[in-house]
Structures are given as structure tokens and as C-alpha cells.
């Protein structure tokens, strides 16, 4: 179970970053960290002891393969992560050109 707990620690590190960091790039980085931890968690869930990578050799039978479904899910999630990072970067560079800083304390027109 240690490996799952370490995975959750990585998730918490990302969460900590999202909450405490005050830099647009650092916030994007924290989101990536959270994504990484979830990818790893999903792949760990699908791992089977002594299982083979899910590529079948057509001649053989009776092999144990690891679960392909979490891998397909993670593949989808990686691409989603790329999409969100790209959007965040687009906004970050635009805000930088307007304010000359990545610091969100100086970018404050709005108050929630």
C-alpha cells in the first residue's frame, strides 16, 4: 500500500502548490503534478503481478496481461492534460504581456 500512499502524497503536493503559489507558471506546474499522480494511481490499479504488457503474441495462449482499460483511460487523460496546459499557457503569456509579471497578486482587477 505504500506506493498508493506516496501517490496520494504527490497529489497533495500538487494541491498545496495550487493553493499557495502566487505565480501563474507555478500554478500550471502544480496542476501537472496532480495530473501525474492520478495517472500513476490509475496505472498502478491496473497492474497485475507477473502480467505481461497488453500486446498479444497471436500464437500463444494462457498468458496473463495487465488491465488495458486503465491504460486507455490514462492515455485519454494525458491528452486532456496537454490540452489544459496549453490553454493555461496561452492565458499566462497574454497576461504577462499585459502586466509584465506572472505574479497574481499584481494581477488583480477582479475580486471573487
Amino acid at each position: 500500500m505504500t506506493v498508493y500512499i506516496l501517490c496520494f502524497v504527490l497529489f497533495l503536493v500538487g494541491l498545496y502548490g495550487v493553493i499557495t503559489r502566487r505565480n501563474l507558471i507555478k500554478i500550471a506546474i502544480s496542476m501537472s503534478i496532480m495530473e501525474f499522480s492520478i495517472f500513476l494511481l490509475l496505472v498502478l490499479i491496473g497492474y497485475i503481478d507477473n502480467g505481461l504488457a497488453p500486446i498479444v503474441d497471436p500464437g500463444t495462449t494462457g498468458q496473463v496481461y495487465v488491465d488495458p482499460l486503465p491504460q486507455a483511460m490514462v492515455l485519454t487523460a494525458i491528452v486532456i492534460g496537454l490540452a489544459t496546459t496549453a490553454m493555461l499557457m496561452a492565458i499566462a503569456i497574454r497576461l504577462y504581456r499585459k502586466y509584465k509579471t506572472f505574479d497574481i497578486r499584481e494581477i488583480k482587477n477582479l475580486r471573487g
Binding site: M31, I38, L41, L42, L88, I91, L95
Partner: peptide, 26 residues
């Protein structure tokens, strides 16, 4: 832009929590 950034960060956080929950359910 600022509103969208805030929305993206909190929306992304929500997506992470949902994905974690889906993983645990699986």
C-alpha cells in the same frame, strides 16, 4: 483573461478531484 484563468485553475482542480474519484471507483 483574468476571470478565465481563475476559472481554469478551479475548473482544473475540480476535474482532478473527479478523475481521482473515478479512479477509486474503478
Amino acid at each position: 483573461l483574468e476571470a478565465s484563468f481563475k476559472y481554469q485553475v478551479l475548473g482544473g482542480l475540480a476535474s482532478m478531484l473527479i478523475l481521482l474519484a473515478i479512479g477509486l471507483i474503478y
